[in-house]
């Protein structure tokens, strides 16, 4: 199977990455527009906050899906992984800013109290802090200068995925079907990463075995 990145002529590839940023951030822009013009229902701030959180999880899943999609389907989308990860980070950052600025009106005592007292907010904050570390080291210079350490640091994305799943699961009174689906997908991505070394080893063995 031929992957998307392979089917594009090389000179269009950088443009396609920028296109991804634009398309990826469009939902946030549109929802913001609805809210700013008074078209986001009875509780616009809460609606926008939840909307951003959900899209953060969607882009987290897309980021995590790059490797299994390559392993299992043969599509190479590695070129887009940094953009997917950064879009996820932007959604998480906006999700937090809407909570802090529009929802809590920068009442720092309340925000601090939330972070220290409420498990689901703790998991969310932990995810945000780790994502900041990944975002600031997502440039080429960091990749080159950090070497192996970079690989280890960026495996935090799986810890972030676990934090996201917990934050999402613990944020509501009872789980909705939608929540269960997203949480199962996050768990599947984490489990796949744990299983991947075994899969790779088997494939290597299969390749080495002489054909009969």
């Amino acid at each position: 199977m031929v992957g998307l990145s392979l089917s594009l002529p090389k000179r269009f590839q950088p443009a396609s990455v920028w296109g991804l940023y634009v398309v990826g951030l469009l939902p946030a822009a549109y929802c913001f527009y609805l809210g700013a013009t008074g078209n986001l229902g009875a509780d616009p701030v809460k609606t926008f906050e939840l909307f951003l959180g959900l899209w953060a999880i969607r882009f987290l899943l897309l980021t995590l899906a790059v490797t299994p999609v390559r392993d299992l389907l043969g599509w190479n989308l590695l070129r887009y992984r940094r953009a997917l990860g950064l879009i996820c980070f932007y959604y998480v950052a906006m999700h937090f800013l809407v909570y802090a600025v529009l929802d809590q009106a920068l009442m720092f005592d309340v925000i601090l109290d939330d972070i220290l007292k409420r498990p689901f907010i703790m998991f969310g904050m932990a995810g945000l802090v780790m994502l900041i570390a990944l975002a600031v080291t997502s440039n080429r210079f960091s990749i080159r200068s950090m070497g192996k350490k970079w690989v280890w640091l960026h495996r935090l994305i799986y810890v972030i995925a676990a934090c996201a799943a917990l934050h999402y699961a613990l944020s509501t009174k009872i789980l909705t079907v939608e929540q269960v689906i997203y949480i199962c997908l996050l768990i599947a991505m984490i489990l796949y990463r744990a299983y991947r070394p075994i899969l790779m080893l088997r494939r290597r063995e299969a390749r080495l075995r002489p054909a009969t």
Binding site: A36, D43, P44, V45, K46, L102, D103, V110, D114, R118
Partner: peptide, 14 residues
């Protein structure tokens, strides 16, 4: 969450 304050629906905007 804290119960110290509440969001009044239909009041204020974004």
């Amino acid at each position: 969450w804290s119960q110290a304050t509440e969001r009044r629906i239909g009041e204020g905007g974004f």
